[in-house]
Design a protein around this nucleic acid. Structure first.
Lengths: 211, 211
DNA sequence: CCCTCATAACTGACTGGTCAGTCATTAAAT
DNA sequence: ATTTAATGACTGACCAGTCAGTTATGAGGG
């Protein structure tokens, strides 16, 4: 009579489902204000089941950070390693891949959570700083250094300039998840990003370079 | 015998003291994880006294946002109105005043809190968007428009470019309060900001302008 | 093919602790 | 003596985490 069983046994699928549900909840209410029952309900499961796969709320948070962003960074790293173009083209590629990531509010929620909870979970902040931010800055810094050596960019400090390159990307990400629901006349993110790319590239281009 | 009275009655000073204490607590543990007793203790007062002046924890949060940043923005607005220089100089002034604000971790904590709690308190997000972010962007946009009209900057979209100007300022602010305690070899914020100013101004300067 | 039975995935009522907010009492100030 | 700022023990709600009990599943036996 009942078409679908009220209970199902799917040991393999649960962890990922729980993580996805937790991310949805954390993204709108934050870490502290999210109840384990909320996560369970959204995952279509009871609270006890959540504890079968994760020993605590903090463990879910940690798994979330490790699962979602580190693979994404690794993917960008390999894409860039396989891409032989000029430094300018590689910066464009980086910005476009990261721009796509930023368009997913669920992924952007994670850095926001890390920032908000850095005081409560300093180990996670350290992990995130090293494995996500550090690797991202290293990638951009490497491209900048390559461009300077090739005479494509004027001399500049790669570490500082990498941060300046990333800043508008971060800002757009944060904006999307903080003020977008409240915005009256939103500006499309890609307009901001393409304007950023053209201003930024113009400002670091070596004097003798082609337009 | 007791040098200082265990109780003192200072109706006037309490609200500000409570706000200052609350800001300190929120800054390190976030809104949800801060207990009213923590705030009271840091203000040198009992929990009941806090409730004499603020009806709830959320009310403290709201008062904090209204008290700390709106005056600061107003102050920048009047400073700029009284400052007659070129658009370039006015941008420099804006950046330097905001740079000083950013150097105070206690003030930077507020936007971080607003971002983290935007989902729980959408009214506060709206207020902050309008009274702080909106006014800041309007100021920068106005300067940019003035510069374009004066032939000082090349033609550009003031709304978009204002956001690009603000991005590194925001990034430095967030960085200072998130990763700085975790950083091995920190980069001084003013190095980032001065590099940003020189790159940004170079990229928007009109072709015929002076170096 | 149907019917145990064993296994373990799953459930949700319960516990223990925490904390926002209250209020009867205390004491400073005038 | 009166007023009112200040106190802190108390209450009621809420929730992370537990565990005794329930049920899906599939193996083995008839």
């Amino acid at each position: 009579m009942d078409p679908r069983p009220t209970r199902s046994r799917r040991k393999e699928a649960r962890p990922a489902e729980v993580l996805a549900a937790a991310l949805d909840c954390f993204a709108v209410t934050g870490f502290a204000a999210t109840r384990m029952e909320d996560i369970a309900a959204r995952a279509g499961v009871s609270k006890g089941t959540v504890y079968l796969y994760y020993p605590s709320k903090q463990a879910i948070f940690e798994a979330l950070v490790q699962n979602s962003l580190v693979p994404r960074i690794a993917q960008i790293e390999t894409a860039l390693a396989a891409f032989p173009g000029s430094a300018t083209d590689r910066l464009r590629l980086f910005a476009s891949v990261l721009g796509n990531t930023i368009a997913e509010p669920r992924l952007v929620a994670i850095p926001k959570l890390v920032m908000a909870e850095a005081g409560n979970f300093p180990d996670m902040a350290r992990f995130y700083r090293r494995e996500v931010v550090g690797r991202g800055l290293a990638l951009v810094g490497g491209i900048l250094r390559q461009g300077v050596e090739a005479g494509e960019f004027r001399p500049l400090d790669p570490a500082i300039t990498a941060r300046l390159f990333m800043a508008p990307l971060m800002l757009v990400a944060i904006w999307q998840t903080t003020f977008a629901p409240v915005e009256e006349q939103p500006i499309p993110p890609d307009q901001i990003l393409s304007q950023h790319l053209s201003l930024f590239l113009a400002s670091i281009r070596a004097p003798g370079g082609s337009p």
